[in-house]
Design a protein around this nucleic acid. Structure first.
Ligand SMILES: [Zn+2]
Ligand SMILES: [Zn+2]
Ligand SMILES: [Zn+2]
Ligand SMILES: [Zn+2]
Ligand SMILES: [Zn+2]
Ligand SMILES: [Zn+2]
Length: 518
DNA sequence: GAGTTTGAAACT
DNA sequence: CAGTTTCAAACTC
């Protein structure tokens, strides 16, 4: 059984220089009815329908109609924090794969979800597209397993998508091919959907980065969108499609669909079947990933690299952009734009920062910066922004962003101090609030009017009235003595101050006297 | 929040 | 490739 996480896009971490592994490709599952091959028109939430068992259903939110194959399927405990997770473990030895995942060095693994290419599965490759569409065409219009994710224009037909052939579906994950094998990558020529589906016999594997964090094979990520990886070893006719982590993690609401294969790998199944979806509709990855910073593009339509969302290979989501085309409603435009970017720079969507594990060796900007006036100590500098030193490839002027730079050290120090300050403040606030609440619970609500639990325990009705009397008296006196208004106000205020002081001092005494030490 | 500065991306 | 323009974010006040 193949477990596929069907997800929708969600926001994700934004990094200007994409630090995390990003690849140019995304796979979308478009489940449509046979008739509606295009499947373009109506967003329908694809329900986890696929013949297999639907483990979970999602309530798609964002662009409802696309399913992204997502990660996080693996049931195996993942201890590596923030590291890549294995979406699916290999058939025979799931655990092994999982272990290796997230490892360091060459041991970068990606989850590969073999996609069967049964008749009902069509792969749609858009030229230059970073997206890899997989359309499940269903013949039946049957049950509405699919529920629309709120989108009003859901196409009924799509909703009821129900894959017919499930036999071929196999769930297996494969450790990602070692870098070397990648060389075998064969750029996928532009082809029509029909062409793509070579044979129903040829399973296609989708290689998906487990999570946003995982280190990714540089080579992989630099592959042109739509690239299909040839099998590492002659082991069969499988094509690989690489899914960039960012895309995968974009999924806010995911549904995991279990594709059951009647024939194959029944043994391996039990374990992973339970592709679990996050409860609240949040995939695990999404829960952990920070929300991406929204863009504010106004003139680029979010189809230029100016737009961080676009540059990161993400759809805009909860952004403040104007005239945004970086969404599923403008797929064709978007794809065109992507192609244009790739024409200009084939590695445009490759992370600019080598993703060495936090400050490791390969953490450097691929192109280097060209700063002139910032000294590379402001976020204008991509190196600095990525929290890395400038390197020899940088062409910056007056760079102060190098290891021994005193300015840099000072800055770092300040930043650290600020951070500490923030933490302390937070701690203080927490403590204070807890103390207050504690106080409130222990203090006898003595009342102002009707039991407010305010800490003005000593401002009883009587006290308040007395205070008012004092103030009125003062006002009267001022009036009688013909004081100008300003003076009168001052006198009254001063009187009020004295009243408060009295109240406070009384409160202090009471406190000391309090046997309970309240 | 408005206005300025900045350097990547886009363009010529 | 270099020079210029455009752009959105970072920054300043
Ligand atoms: Zn944008
Ligand atoms: Zn955006
Ligand atoms: Zn946008
Ligand atoms: Zn710089
Ligand atoms: Zn630099
Ligand atoms: Zn520098």
């Amino acid at each position: 059984p193949a477990v596929i996480a069907a997800n929708h896009f969600s926001s994700q971490i934004t990094k200007k220089p994409p630090v995390s592994t990003a690849g140019p490709m995304i796979t979308k599952l478009i489940i449509t009815k046979a008739l509606n091959n295009k499947g373009l028109s109506s967003p329908a939430s694809v329900a986890p329908v696929v013949t297999g068992r639907v483990v979970t259903q999602s309530t798609p939110v964002t662009p409802p109609r696309t399913l992204t194959i997502g990660e996080t399927v693996s049931t195996v405990p993942q201890n590596t924090s923030g590291n890549s997770k294995v979406a699916i473990s290999p058939l025979k030895s799931p655990s092994k794969t999982v272990k290796t995942v997230g490892g360091v060095g060459p041991s970068q693994f990606k989850t590969i979800i073999p996609l069967t290419t049964p008749p009902n599965v069509q792969q749609i490759q858009v030229p230059g597209s970073r997206f890899h569409y997989v359309r499940l065409v269903t013949a039946t219009t049957g049950s509405t397993t699919a529920q629309s994710g709120g989108s009003t224009n859901t196409n009924p037909s799509i909703q009821s998508a129900k894959p017919v052939m499930m036999n071929a579906a196999v769930r297996m994950s494969v450790p990602i091919i070692p870098a070397q094998s990648i060389k075998q990558v064969v750029p996928k020529p532009l082809m029509s959907a029909a062409q793509v589906v070579t044979t129903s016999q040829t399973p296609q594997r989708l290689i998906m980065p487990a999570t946003h964090l995982p280190q990714i094979q540089p080579n992989l990520t630099s592959l042109p969108p739509g690239t299909v990886l040839a099998p590492a070893h002659g082991s069969g006719n499988m094509g690989y499609a690489v899914l960039p982590a960012p895309y995968v993690t974009q999924i806010p609401q995911s549904a995991f669909v279990t594709l059951t294969s009647s024939s194959t790998f029944s043994t391996a199944t039990p374990i992973q079947t339970q592709a679990r979806l996050s409860l609240n509709g949040l995939s695990t990855s999404e829960a952990t990933s920070r929300p991406r910073k929204p863009c504010n593009c106004t003139r680029s339509q979010c189809l230029k690299l100016y737009c961080d969302c676009f540059a990161n290979g993400e759809f805009c989501n909860n952004c403040n952009c104007v005239n945004c085309f970086n969404n599923l409603d403008h797929e064709s435009e978007r794809l065109k734009a992507i192609k244009a970017c790739l024409d200009r720079n084939p590695v445009a969507f490759k992370p600019k920062i080598g993703k060495g594990k936090q400050g490791e060796s390969d953490r450097r900007h691929s192109k280097g910066c060209n700063c002139k006036k910032s000294g590379c100590l402001k976020n204008y500098c991509e190196c600095y922004e990525a929290k890395i030193m400038c390197s020899s490839i940088c062409k910056c002027m007056g760079c102060k962003n190098f290891e021994e730079s005193p300015e840099r050290k000072t800055l770092m120090h300040l930043a650290d101090a600020a951070e500490v300050r923030v933490q302390q403040q937070t701690a203080a606030k927490t403590k204070l609030s807890s103390q207050i609440s504690d106080l409130l619970t222990r203090t006898t609500p003595a009342v102002i009017s009707g039991g407010g639990k305010l800490p003005y325990t000593f401002v009883t009705k009587e006290v308040a009235e007395a205070t008012c009397d004092c103030l009125l008296e003062q006002a009267e006196q001022a009036e009688l003595t013909n004081q100008p208004q300003a003076v009168a106000e001052r006198l009254i205020l001063e009187e009020f101050g004295r009243c408060l002081r009295r109240i406070i001092s009384f409160a202090g005494k009471a406190k000391t006297d309090c046997p309970i030490n309240c």
